[in-house]
Nucleic acid binder design. Structure first.
Ligand SMILES: [Mn+2]
Ligand SMILES: [Mn+2]
Ligand SMILES: [Mn+2]
Ligand SMILES: [Mn+2]
Lengths: 219, 219
DNA sequence: TTTAAAATTTAGGCAAACCTAAATTTTAAA
DNA sequence: TTTAAAATTTAGGTTTGCCTAAATTTTAAA
């Protein structure tokens, strides 16, 4: 079945809001995420429901159907592969790729995705550490925790972020902190929950609780 | 000024039909080329004219304005760079690239084009031998002739084609004939204007006049 | 030069996606 | 439990880009 760019964007938004298809996304959340009027969202949710791409219940909200999930996963797969391509092959920085990937993710060509995947070496994660769904829509399993919940003195590897704004990405750049960097908590201030951290075994600094809660790490 | 995908496609069509902006493209030609109803073309030509992208006169037809030419050239530049990328980097064959490039040519990112151009080594011609406009919309100058107008016994290099159909491309593939191949006319049949040709200094065969008139060559 | 064919435009509509304003329904506070 | 606030839907519109059918205009044949 053919899905329009708009439909793909709705399905992506619903996926992102549903936390692995566990909690239904409601009208307002979708409207906010897509910067679209709630009235328009009502229209589209009815349409997506009629097409069998979501299950929609007035009160609870929208959940992706099996088919809707496939479309969403495929779109996200393309988005993240393109971001990886832009960084790996075209000298983009991680704060420059998202907008272009928003356009590229809607290009329709099986061969293009497959060859791109091969060219990039079948990457499992994109430049922001986000997992790339495989050809069947399956996400690699990994269970990072927020640095704000991490243990003191242990050495962690930064493997993701929960804030993708340019401001945050550029903030991390100023510390040469990127996916794969090591982070060690060396101290904690109960007053404002800020943390002293050692970055890449070399740089000592203090991060606010907000910053720490946006950093995903694994041991 | 922002131009829609549809507008870009109209401008490309007008460019292609105007033979270097020399002859105005008329309604019917555009309708045919885009597989759109002439009535719809009338609408769009009025709109493009109001936006200053074309000069339109009821009788003669449409000619690109300076600005329209820039948009058309940029779109064609992107199309041909993408085709080159698909063949050079992603193992596409020359008969597989056009459809995908029709989508990719509308992606809007200056950096993407520039980096792609660099990655590919600033190519001057695409996989079909078509010239790639530079960043200012200028086409490389070259003056190929149709093989059907070429001289006997001289050795020519195939540098372009005037028929881009899959059927024709695959026909050429069966002779291992591609851009850069050599072609030598070894004989001529006045009866049906068919030509005996020596391909790549190795293969002798006979091509119809139709085939020869679709092959562009240079010495 | 008349007349018929061909090309083009006008008129009236449709579908996709969006919007605002006005209901209506849900949720939550009092 | 009533009532007010918040969320959602309905109603009525707009824009873009397309279509068909019916003019109208151009071109070309007779
Ligand atoms: Mn992104
Ligand atoms: Mn990403
Ligand atoms: Mn092409
Ligand atoms: Mn080409």
């Amino acid at each position: 079945m053919h899905t329009s760019v708009t439909e793909e964007n709705y399905l992506k938004a619903i996926f992102a809001l549903s936390n692995g298809n566990l909690q239904a996304a409601n009208n307002q959340q979708i409207a906010d995420k897509l910067s679209i009027n709630p009235a328009s969202v009502s229209d589209m949710l009815r349409k997506l429901s009629e097409r069998g791409l979501i299950a929609y219940h007035r009160k609870t909200g929208a959940l992706l159907s099996e088919e809707g999930m496939q479309v969403a996963a495929k779109t996200i797969r393309k988005h993240r592969l393109w971001e990886t391509f832009l960084v790996q092959q075209l000298n983009f920085t991680w704060d420059e790729v998202h907008e272009v990937a928003e356009q590229l993710e809607h290009i329709d060509s099986e061969k293009l995705i497959q060859e791109m995947d091969k060219l990039l070496g079948y990457p499992k994660f994109d430049p922001h550490g986000d997992p790339i769904p495989d050809g069947n829509g399956q996400l690699p399993k990994y269970h990072p925790i927020a640095l704000s919940n991490a243990g003191i003195q242990k050495i962690y590897i930064l493997c993701g972020i929960t804030n993708h704004s340019s401001a945050f990405l550029q903030f991390l750049d100023t510390f040469s902190l990127g996916i794969g960097s090591t982070v060690q908590i060396t101290g904690f201030q109960p007053f404002d929950r800020s943390m002293s951290v050692l970055l890449n075994q070399t740089t000592s600094t203090v991060f606010s609780f907000t910053v720490c809660s946006n950093l995903l790490v694994m041991q």
